[in-house]
Amino acid sequence: MTVRVNDVVSGVLVGALGIAALTIAQSFPEIPGEPGPALFPRLAGAGLLVVAVALVLGGWGGRNAAPWVEWPEWFSHPRCFAAVVVIVAGLAITALYVETLGFFICAPLLVGALLVALSVRVAVAIPVALIATAVVHAIFYSGLRVALPWGLFERFAW
């Protein structure tokens, strides 16, 4: 489980999102003769505000029953912490750099690192990561013609 918050706190967060949506929507233009592009964002923002109030009011009664913020137990588990970091950072790195580095670097790193973080033995993790990369590339690039980026390996492209 992840961070758990009291309904009062989640209400405040939902409300903040609603206010942000409404604030940005103020700059949307009006179009003569049409309801204009600001209408629906405003409705959605207002809807979030209404829900926020309901959550805060509902949560206020039980505020003593649940702590404001409950930090998850895995914060103190290095293994769990590492796995979360690998998933989030791994996907972020893939999104940012896969076009430069190429699928053949990012995919085995993502899979391999997560395997290791989930306590799979390294001797198993490396072959699994490499085989998975090769199989996925064969299916999607060669079979289904998905243009998986070559990155550094551009000149070996087939």
């Binding site: 550094l152 390996f153 551009e154 000149r155 070996f156 492209a157 087939w158």
Partner: peptide
């Protein structure tokens, strides 16, 4: 992969 191209032949090579 980064090293210079092995041969600069006729376009296209790949």
């Amino acid at each position: 992969a980064i090293s210079p191209a092995f041969a600069d032949g006729v376009f296209p090579q790949r």
